[in-house]
Amino acid sequence: MPPFVHPSESTGTLSSRPEHSSESPLSIHAMTVAYQRKPVLWDVDYDAPPNKLIAIVGPNGAGKSTLIKASLGLIPRASGQVEFWGGSYKQSRARVGYVPQRESVDWDFPVSALDVVAMGRYRRIGWCRPVSRKHKDIALACLDHVGMRDLAHRQISQLSGGQQQRVFLARALAQEADLYFMDEPFAGVDAATERSIIKVLRELKENGKTVIVVHHDLQTVPTYFDEAILLNMRIVASGPVPEVFTEDNLQKTYGGRLTLLSEASEAVARASRGER
């Protein structure tokens, strides 16, 4: 829809936004995302502080994964910009790592755990060249890091859910990125895996990295994370966990969907699909 310019009312949109510096690994500005033209994220503004563990929390269907995917350009944005260290995603791609949802792949695929982790090195290896000894060793070290060295040569369908998740984590480590996006890494994993994942996250932070995690367990947020984004179709609150986790904010996030906002999403979707 064509935006119309009203100098009188759109004042402040630019000036009141915090001056985003190249310090911030990720800054999202006025991002709206629609699935089949149905808005699922409304006008998100966010600047990620560097060197923090950040949780995205919110109820089901709040758009948590969508926020990650749209930031990475995996799904198109209806509007808004995303910058990485003040530049475009293309420029900073090599510094960004990604752990997709575990269910997003076919775990019966004929590759070993090591093969999957080595995929994190492909970007460095480049086109047409095979995975050399050096990169294999790095991949092995990453597997070792998540306590999976013994299972390196197992086919991935023979791993438990938690082990599969650790393979994904190891692959992200192999990417040697500065900013990580992880989509529900704690979903359906055993206690041992959860501990090992959080250990790795803390190490990443100690090494100056930033990690943004879609998380579904509110209780563990204060112990695991520094910062949180409370999300329910729009950002309800964001910032350091103690500041953000107030009764009021949580109520706003989880206290039922704003029915009118969902209805509005549906109505916008219908209108722009050309339906009544």
Binding site: K69, G73, V111, M119, Y122
Partner: peptide, 14 residues
């Protein structure tokens, strides 16, 4: 192999 196994990862990876 990468694209067949996990296309979204491949895309993010450039």
């Amino acid at each position: 192999t990468l694209v067949c196994f996990n296309d979204s990862f491949a895309k993010v990876d450039g």
